[in-house]
Design a protein around this nucleic acid. Structure first.
Length: 276
DNA sequence: AACAAGACCTGCATGC
DNA sequence: TGCATGCAGGTCTTGT
């Protein structure tokens, strides 16, 4: 489910459902996710009021009145489900939060690549999983200069570089393909060669892709995206991802068809005529 | 230091 | 039907 637009959508859903609510009970069904759930999770959160949410890259931070923050990552298959209290545990539901006024929030993650951790709110930025993240692509200070500086000297492909969360935070396999299409850059291009006007195009491609996807509520594959169960629909607006063989919207008649290649074990989709 | 490959885990679609 | 295979929105670790 989760690249930046899906994580942003989830965070907004959590905000509207849970802001100001008080956690009454935390039940941990299974602790062995990507990293173990802290043994003190329940003790530290029970009785605390939810005071706000932040997103950093693909991570969500849920801030509590105790000045502790719950750090959430959804991995590949993570989901959050909100309902009212008496609901059956569903398969792979590893943690359940219940609020004082009867809401029930479940963290569900079949593959267990996701994680939950605690960090003092004032030290969020120093958390080992957050401290090396690159710039937020939707912040105003993300520009061609900033991106170009992080690509200097990198001999890998631009595809691999953009998946590196230290270069820019929040992109994943789908949105890298989509952003490179909009920027008319081949995923095979050497990262260091993206500077000047190409970097301008790429920044623009990244931002417009992410903004459009957020406006659509993200992309839904097999899982649903939003905590209330609503589906995102940006998967219908993908221009290249999952469209191998189709003509791209830019070249129409003369198009050789969208290609799918493997790079570092992951698929990349692109138009070899309009992306160089 | 940078990079590619392997590892982690489960579910699902495909093909025999 | 049953089974094997490969693939999936991520990232951490290992080895070159």
């Amino acid at each position: 489910m989760p690249e930046l637009p899906e994580v942003e959508t989830v965070m907004r859903g959590l905000t509207s459902a849970l802001l100001g609510h008080v956690i009454e009970r935390v039940t941990v069904v299974r602790r062995d996710l990507r990293r173990p759930i802290p043994p003190t999770l329940a003790a530290q959160l029970e009785g605390q009021r939810i005071d706000g949410f932040r997103r950093r890259g693909k991570y969500i931070l849920m801030r509590f009145s105790s000045e502790m923050s719950l750090l959430i990552h959804l991995g590949m298959s993570g989901r959050i489900r909100i309902g009212s209290s008496p609901i059956m545990l569903e398969p792979h539901e590893h943690v359940v939060f219940q609020t004082a006024d009867g809401l029930r929030v479940g963290f569900i993650d079949p593959r267990r690549f996701g994680l939950l951790d605690l960090v003092p709110t004032l030290q969020e930025k120093r958390h080992v999983l957050l401290r090396d993240l690159g710039p937020e692509p939707l912040e105003p200070d993300f520009n061609a200069q900033v991106l170009g500086a992080r690509l200097v000297g990198r001999r890998t492909t631009i595809k691999a570089a953009l998946l590196d969360q230290r270069v820019v935070a929040g992109l994943g396999n789908i949105y890298v393909s989509e952003a490179l299409f909009r920027a008319r850059l081949s995923p095979r291009r050497i990262a260091a060669s993206v500077a000047g006007p190409r970097a301008e195009r790429l920044v623009d491609g990244i931002r417009t892709t992410l903004k459009d996807a957020i406006a659509a509520g993200g992309s839904s594959l097999r899982d649903y995206v939003q905590p209330n169960g609503a589906l995102g629909y940006f998967q219908n607006a993908w221009k290249v991802y999952g469209r191998e063989g189709e003509p791209c919207e830019r070249c129409q008649p003369g198009c050789r068809g969208i290609r799918c290649i493997a790079q570092n074990g992951r698929s990349s989709f692109y138009c070899s005529r309009t992306q160089r």
